[in-house]
Simulated assay, not measured.
Amino acid sequence: MTGPAAHTFTIAAVPADGVGTEVVTAGRAVLDALAAASGGAFAFDWTEFPWGCGYYERTGRMMDDDGLDALKGFDAIYFGAVGWPSVPDHISLWGLRLRICQNFDQWANVRPVHFHPGITSPLRKADDTPLDWVVVRENSEGEYAGLGGRNLSGRGPGNEVALQTALFTEKGCERIARFAFELARGRERKKVSSVTKSNAQQYGMVLWDETLSRVARDYPDVETESVLVDAMSAKFVLRPEDLSVVVASNLHADILSDLGSALAGSLGLAASANLNPERRFPSMFEPVHGSAPDIAGRGLANPIGAIGSAALMLDHFGLSAEAGRVRAAIEATTAAGVLTPDVGGKAKTGDVVASIIDQLSS
Score class of each variant (00 low, 15 high):
Val14Tyr: 04
Gly148Arg: 07
Glu57Pro: 00
Phe317Gln: 08
Val19Glu: 02
Ser38Arg: 06
Glu225Tyr: 03
Ser266Leu: 09
Leu319Asn: 04
Ser249Gly: 14
Leu259Gly: 05
Lys348Tyr: 07
Gly297Gln: 14
Val215Lys: 00
Ile91Gly: 13
Thr334Tyr: 03
Asp127Tyr: 14
Asp32Ala: 11
Leu263Ile: 09
Trp94Val: 10
Trp46Pro: 01
Pro287Thr: 05
Ile11Arg: 00
Gly142Arg: 02
Ser121Phe: 15
Ser226Lys: 05
Ala29Thr: 11
Trp208Ile: 04
Glu241Tyr: 08
Ser291Arg: 01
Tyr144Trp: 15
Leu339Asp: 01
Ala321Val: 13
Asn109Cys: 10
Ile119Trp: 02
Leu314Ser: 05
Phe285Ala: 11
Asp17Val: 05
Gly260Trp: 01
Ser266Trp: 08
Ala328Lys: 14
Glu188Pro: 04
Asp75Cys: 11
Tyr203Lys: 15
Gly27Glu: 07
Ala264Ile: 04
His252Gln: 14
Met205Arg: 00
Gly172Glu: 00
Ala216His: 01
Arg279Cys: 12
Val195Lys: 00
Ala332Glu: 04
Met63Trp: 06
Ala108Thr: 00
Lys190Gln: 08
Ala200Lys: 01
Ile307His: 06
Arg178Phe: 06
Val206Glu: 06
Leu212Tyr: 08
Phe44His: 04
Phe285His: 05
Gly318Cys: 11
Gly308Ala: 13
Val161Tyr: 10
Gln202Lys: 09
Gly305Ile: 07
Ser244Val: 10
Lys125Trp: 03
Phe44Pro: 04
Pro341Ser: 12
Arg28Phe: 10
Gly156Tyr: 12
